[in-house]
Amino acid sequence: MIDKDFWIYLLIIAGSTYLIRAVPFAAVQKKITNRFVRSFLYYIPYTVLSAMTFPTALYATGSVVAASVGLLVAVLFAIKSKSLTLVAAMSCLTVFVCEQLINIL
């Protein structure tokens, strides 16, 4: 990694990420009244997270089976409780246990 390159890259990645977040936030001060746009904005965060999770998460750990069980556990816990930490911790724990079991079998 060339040093000069790193700083240029850092400027691009940090600058573009900042502007893409801050400009719409600062520029739109009025309430949007268009029903379609409002509905679109209501759904977008959830569709982003869903598309980021499936199917990529299946391949995030050492085993597809363990990841699948971990995600299933996450869904079950998420329906019961809204604690992000609990859900994330349970899914990790499940993967850990599953992978140990797979290694033993």
């Binding site: 999770t53 995030a60 363990a66 816990f77 992000l84």
Partner: peptide, 16 residues
């Protein structure tokens, strides 16, 4: 390996 699922668990906790 197990920790790699944390972020996705969090996503699911928001959407589900």
């Amino acid at each position: 390996s197990a920790l790699c699922l944390a972020i996705y668990g969090m996503f699911i906790a928001i959407v589900a």
